[in-house]
Amino acid sequence: QIFVKTLTGKTITLEVEPSDTIENVKAKIQDKEGIPPDQQRLIFAGKQLEDGRTLSDYNIQKESTLHLVL
């Protein structure tokens, strides 16, 4: 699982696999929060994550925290 922290300070927990794409993660966030993926920007280690890449591409491991910017 990974954590996604929103600007409001809320933390969302997501069940993911390293092979999941960023697009996939955004879809999971939409399921939980109702935020359309095209409004979501995910930041990890100061980098904006691209939809077509996977979590493992960015070396995002379990218990990692991503930041969600709208």
Rank of each mutant, 00 (worst) to 15 (best):
Q1P: 08
I2T: 02
I2K: 01
I2D: 01
F3S: 05
F3H: 09
F3V: 05
K5L: 14
K5P: 01
T6L: 15
T6F: 14
L7S: 15
L7R: 10
L7M: 13
L7H: 15
L7T: 13
T8I: 08
T8L: 10
G9V: 02
G9T: 03
G9C: 07
G9Y: 04
K10T: 09
K10E: 08
K10R: 10
T11P: 03
T11G: 03
T11L: 14
T11Y: 09
I12P: 00
I12H: 03
I12D: 00
T13E: 08
T13W: 07
T13H: 06
L14F: 05
L14V: 10
L14P: 00
E15Y: 13
V16A: 08
V16P: 01
E17P: 03
P18S: 11
P18F: 15
P18M: 14
S19T: 14
D20T: 10
D20K: 02
D20M: 13
D20F: 06
D20Q: 05
T21I: 04
T21R: 07
T21L: 10
T21M: 07
T21D: 03
T21F: 07
I22Y: 01
I22S: 02
E23S: 15
E23K: 13
E23R: 13
E23V: 07
N24M: 13
N24I: 15
N24D: 11
V25P: 00
V25L: 12
K26G: 01
K26Q: 03
A27W: 14
A27F: 14
K28Y: 07
I29T: 01
I29W: 00
Q30D: 05
D31G: 10
D31T: 10
D31S: 11
D31N: 09
K32E: 07
E33I: 14
E33F: 09
E33G: 05
G34C: 07
G34D: 05
G34H: 07
I35N: 03
P36K: 07
P36G: 06
P37K: 15
P37L: 15
P37T: 14
P37M: 15
D38Y: 12
D38G: 11
Q39A: 10
Q39C: 11
Q39W: 09
Q39K: 11
Q40V: 10
R41Q: 14
R41F: 15
R41A: 09
L42M: 03
L42T: 00
L42I: 07
L42V: 04
I43N: 06
I43S: 11
I43T: 10
F44R: 02
F44N: 02
F44L: 05
F44V: 03
F44D: 02
A45H: 14
A45W: 08
A45R: 11
A45F: 10
G46W: 05
G46K: 04
G46Q: 05
G46V: 02
G46I: 02
K47W: 09
K47C: 14
K47A: 10
K47Y: 09
K47V: 13
Q48S: 11
Q48W: 11
Q48Y: 13
Q48T: 13
L49V: 04
E50D: 09
E50M: 08
D51S: 07
D51A: 07
G52C: 10
G52I: 07
G52L: 08
G52N: 12
R53Q: 09
R53W: 10
R53I: 06
L55V: 07
L55D: 00
L55W: 03
L55R: 00
S56D: 10
D57A: 06
D57L: 03
D57M: 06
Y58D: 02
Y58C: 05
Y58S: 03
Y58W: 02
Y58E: 03
N59W: 04
N59A: 08
N59T: 04
I60Q: 01
I60H: 01
I60D: 01
I60S: 01
Q61H: 12
Q61I: 14
Q61C: 10
K62N: 13
K62R: 10
K62Y: 10
E63W: 12
E63G: 15
S64C: 09
T65F: 07
T65Q: 06
T65P: 03
T65M: 09
L66W: 02
L66A: 02
H67Q: 12
H67W: 09
H67M: 15
L68D: 00
V69G: 06
V69L: 14
L70D: 09
L70T: 10
L70A: 10
